[in-house]
Design a protein around this nucleic acid. Structure first.
Lengths: 121, 121
DNA sequence: TGAACATATGAACGATTGTTCATATGATGA
DNA sequence: TCATCATATGAACAATCGTTCATATGTTCA
């Protein structure tokens, strides 16, 4: 990440450059928020997790059923559920031997359906 | 991905299992759509690309200014812009030696701000 | 308590990702 | 045409990711 603010600007427009820095300063969310945001979208960036979420949109489901419904191993699903839970997109509840997972809040639904709209057009 | 639909069901509730498969069949978007959706969110799952998009929310900018504003190499930015363009989140326009990038549509804004809401709470 | 079942988790693996470096392409103006 | 500036891109690298396998933890019931 080498940077050279030499007196001779590239794009030869110092003004645009200045106003750009102003934009970055004023409108760009703080570093940690950007990081969290990217981290959130990263969660949605895997089709296994998306499929899990689509199931949870409709019902509270235990790990074993989730695995069979999505045709994947229990371990793979469990690992992904852990990631979803750590990101607080999903919550769990134990009932006997089983653990039932459900959506943590309805925000997820909105984000995913916005994404779907973009993809479907 | 070995799966064993033995007669003895785990979670011992065949009914829930059946209704789950119904959900998956009826409510789950088709395979390729899920893939595209994950692919879309993957794009947002990197803070460099998010920062680029935040700048483009405010202005049409050339690669060189983008690189300086975000304090990154021209090459790194160019690579990411290519990804953003391939996903049709961003469009470009040549003006002399420079290439100016801008948002392809306002859908992006909505998706990102939904994400921000979730992160900020 | 011990067998059986449901879930969680650590290590290991191949696959994918983002950046860097070097260089190619494209445009301008002398 | 040549030098220069702006951008694009291919190869290489370390880092991260998702799955599998083996196994640990937790719960129930006999």
């Amino acid at each position: 990440m080498k940077l050279d603010f030499s007196p001779v600007e590239c794009c030869d427009s110092v003004e645009i450059h200045e106003s750009l820095l102003k934009i970055v300063d004023e409108k760009m969310p703080p570093e940690d928020e950007l990081y969290d945001l990217a981290e959130l979208f990263k969660i949605f960036g895997d089709s296994t997790r998306i499929r899990i979420l689509f199931v949870l949109f409709e019902a509270e489901v235990c790990v074993c059923d989730l695995a069979r419904a999505l045709n994947m191993t229990q371990s793979a699903i469990s690992h992904q559920l852990r990631i979803l839970k750590q990101s607080q997109l999903v919550k769990s509840r134990r009932e006997g031997k089983s653990v039932f997972y459900s959506l943590a809040d309805d925000h997820v639904r909105t984000i995913i359906s916005q994404g779907l709209e973009h993809v479907e057009e």
